[in-house]
Measured scan of single mutants.
Amino acid sequence: MDSLVVLVLCLSCLLLLSLWRQSSGRGKLPPGPTPLPVIGNILQIGIKDISKSLTNLSKVYGPVFTLYFGLKPIVVLHGYEAVKEALIDLGEEFSGRGIFPLAERANRGFGIVFSNGKKWKEIRRFSLMTLRNFGMGKRSIEDRVQEEARCLVEELRKTKASPCDPTFILGCAPCNVICSIIFHKRFDYKDQQFLNLMEKLNENIKILSSPWIQICNNFSPIIDYFPGTHNKLLKNVAFMKSYILEKVKEHQESMDMNNPQDFIDCFLMKMEKEKHNQPSEFTIESLENTAVDLFGAGTETTSTTLRYALLLLLKHPEVTAKVQEEIERVIGRNRSPCMQDRSHMPYTDAVVHEVQRYIDLLPTSLPHAVTCDIKFRNYLIPKGTTILISLTSVLHDNKEFPNPEMFDPHHFLDEGGNFKKSKYFMPFSAGKRICVGEALAGMELFLFLTSILQNFNLKSLVDPKNLDTTPVVNGFASVPPFYQLCFIPV
């Protein structure tokens, strides 16, 4: 009986604490739906499609509103004006990374994606500088992407125009580009180590996009005490870190300090320079996690976009025909596509942009946080508050993009057929937390897609009208449904 009384008292205290925290903070924060004790607004949000729920709530509470995930307040920004004001106009104040408990377990605050403060700034600055020195957006990395595009075309030829699921092959190409940047090595598509790495990356994007992960991140005790797919994700990350550590040891034994070959060499050189400046942010643990982040951000996002792009091109054969006509006119058949071609191919450029806009790969991006107490639109948001960005509300804005739910390359073309930029184009987020590999991803999408369409016609196994382009999961990332196609050599 005594234990029951204690339990009831504990629960009562928890409920009172929950109510007090919510009521004391709500006077400062933007308005929002009334949260339930302990669980907050979790029942009012469709976990399978958070973005749709945010759109519905914005119609009631406006472009800036507050939700509670458990006891934790989260300020939501919906629509271009609110997102721009926060991420661009007040970029420094909104540059923090929001709480992501599962990532905390995986990387302990290291790396480039989930770190904060001085650690994040130094690692991000170093990573950007190193990638630029190796030619991100310049010639040397373009050579690597072109080489991988040629290998991709050869792998597709091996399908002999038979029906195939493109998931694996389209994942190999961007993964190999990242391998060449980090390890100075590309792998054969049949290499077992490479296959294991690909498998872990593919599993992780599916797990991260599941409703279960949303629950884990908002009720963090689940991570330590409950079984579930989150444990598989943590094991996959541990596998990748151990693999990278092996490569780091190989580099330490063979590195030429006067001739760095890749990202690992550059990081080890930085560690050597910083060894007298303790404590340094440049450690082996930081290198492991930064490399894992580059793999995660640079492989599955690009391969998922490529997979979605081919599905949309199957669905819209008239678009595919126009792209192939432009390829034939500008590039021809006797040389590989290059980035200089893009400025002469406005329709193809528009298609690449429209694919990214339409699929809305990361509907709410990753959570941000404010780095200080900030007054925002007459609300006071306390330091450390998590900020949720609705990228969907920007990419699918119906004023900027008429009929935003329709796939239409003319969203990025003017009346004369010239490519038209849009400030609403934010597939990689915006501001200080914009994806480090934005330029690389854009290069890969253009070169891989043009190389495929230069060499193959795409054949659907069903009537294009019957192809479903609805994402199968739409949590962290929008993942396309399973499909097969035939690559018919031109």
Rank of each mutant, 00 (worst) to 15 (best):
V5T: 12
V6Q: 13
V6M: 15
L7D: 06
L11G: 14
C13V: 15
C13S: 14
L17S: 12
L17A: 14
L19K: 14
W20R: 12
R21E: 12
Q22P: 14
Q22L: 12
R26Q: 11
R26T: 13
R26L: 12
P30D: 00
P30I: 02
P30N: 00
G32H: 02
P33I: 02
T34F: 10
T34L: 11
T34A: 11
V38T: 03
G40I: 03
N41V: 02
N41M: 04
N41E: 04
I42Y: 14
I47S: 15
I47Q: 13
K48P: 10
K48I: 06
I50T: 10
I50N: 07
I50L: 11
S51C: 11
S51H: 14
K52Y: 08
K52R: 12
K52C: 09
S53Y: 11
S53R: 13
L54I: 15
T55G: 12
Y61R: 02
G62C: 02
P63D: 14
P63N: 14
L67G: 02
K72L: 03
P73I: 02
I74E: 03
V76Y: 07
L77R: 00
G79P: 01
G79T: 06
Y80V: 12
E81M: 07
V83I: 15
V83R: 01
K84C: 10
L90H: 15
E92I: 09
E93C: 08
F94L: 11
S95A: 12
I99S: 15
F100D: 15
F100G: 15
P101A: 12
P101S: 14
A103S: 15
A103C: 15
E104H: 10
E104G: 12
N107I: 05
N107Q: 15
G109V: 05
G111L: 00
I112R: 00
N116M: 05
K119A: 13
W120R: 07
E122L: 08
I123W: 09
R125F: 02
F126M: 13
F126A: 06
L128N: 09
L128V: 11
R132F: 06
M136N: 11
K138V: 11
R139C: 11
S140I: 09
S140W: 14
I141G: 01
I141M: 12
E142L: 02
E142V: 04
E142D: 02
D143F: 08
D143T: 12
Q146C: 10
Q146V: 11
E147K: 07
E148L: 00
A149M: 04
R150S: 09
R150A: 12
K158A: 10
K160I: 03
K160A: 11
P163E: 06
C164F: 08
D165Q: 01
D165V: 01
I169M: 06
I169N: 02
A173D: 00
C175R: 04
C175Y: 05
C175S: 04
C175T: 12
N176T: 01
I182M: 15
F183V: 02
R186I: 00
R186V: 03
Y189I: 01
K190V: 05
L195G: 06
K200G: 07
L201I: 10
N202G: 09
K206A: 10
K206T: 07
K206Y: 02
L208Y: 08
S209Q: 14
I213Y: 15
I213S: 15
I215S: 05
N217R: 15
N217Y: 15
N217W: 14
N218I: 15
F219D: 07
F219R: 06
F219Q: 06
F219V: 10
P221F: 13
F226K: 04
P227F: 13
P227Q: 08
L234A: 11
K235P: 04
V237T: 13
A238G: 09
A238I: 07
S242Q: 14
K247L: 05
K247S: 08
K247Q: 14
Q252S: 08
Q252K: 15
E253W: 06
E253C: 09
S254G: 10
M255G: 10
D256E: 09
N258R: 12
N258M: 09
N258H: 12
N259F: 07
P260K: 07
F263N: 02
F263H: 03
F263P: 02
D265Y: 03
C266R: 10
C266M: 13
F267L: 04
K270T: 10
K270I: 06
M271S: 09
K273R: 13
K273I: 08
N277T: 12
Q278R: 11
Q278W: 09
I284F: 09
S286N: 15
L287R: 02
E288P: 06
N289H: 11
A291S: 06
D293G: 04
D293L: 09
G298V: 00
G298H: 01
T299D: 01
T299Q: 04
E300S: 11
S303L: 02
L306S: 01
R307T: 03
R307Y: 00
A309C: 10
L311C: 04
L313F: 09
L314I: 10
L314A: 08
P317V: 06
P317R: 07
P317S: 07
P317Q: 11
E318H: 10
V319G: 02
A321C: 12
A321G: 12
Q324P: 01
E325M: 10
I327E: 02
R329A: 11
V330F: 08
V330A: 10
I331F: 03
R335Q: 08
R335M: 05
R335V: 06
R335K: 10
C338K: 13
Q340T: 12
Q340R: 15
H344P: 04
P346G: 06
T348F: 04
T348P: 00
T348K: 00
V351F: 12
V352T: 11
D360G: 09
P363V: 02
P363H: 05
T364G: 14
T364I: 11
S365Y: 00
L366H: 02
L366G: 02
A369T: 15
T371C: 08
C372R: 15
D373F: 01
D373S: 05
K375S: 09
R377E: 07
N378V: 01
L380R: 11
L380H: 14
P382A: 07
K383F: 04
G384M: 03
T385S: 10
T385A: 08
T385N: 04
T386S: 10
I387P: 00
L388W: 15
L388C: 07
I389G: 05
I389A: 12
S390T: 09
S390D: 10
S390V: 07
S390E: 06
L391N: 11
L391H: 08
L391Y: 11
T392M: 07
D397P: 03
D397R: 03
N398P: 15
E400P: 06
E400S: 09
M406P: 04
F407I: 01
F407T: 00
F407L: 02
H410M: 13
H410F: 05
H411N: 11
H411P: 00
F412G: 00
F412R: 00
L413D: 04
L413R: 02
G417V: 04
N418Q: 11
N418F: 07
N418S: 11
N418M: 10
K420L: 07
K421M: 12
Y424C: 11
F425E: 06
F425A: 11
P427V: 09
P427K: 01
S429Y: 02
R433E: 02
R433A: 01
I434K: 14
V436S: 08
E438Y: 11
E438R: 12
A439L: 14
L445F: 10
L445R: 03
F446L: 02
F446P: 01
F446N: 01
L447I: 15
L449C: 06
T450V: 14
S451P: 03
S451Y: 11
S451E: 04
Q454T: 02
S460A: 14
L461K: 08
D463A: 08
D463V: 04
P464R: 05
K465T: 10
K465S: 11
L467C: 03
T469P: 09
T470M: 09
T470L: 07
N474M: 10
F476C: 06
A477R: 15
S478V: 12
S478T: 12
S478C: 14
F482P: 15
Y483R: 01
Y483A: 01
L485I: 14
L485P: 00
C486P: 00
C486Y: 06
F487E: 00
I488L: 11
P489C: 01
V490L: 13
V490T: 13
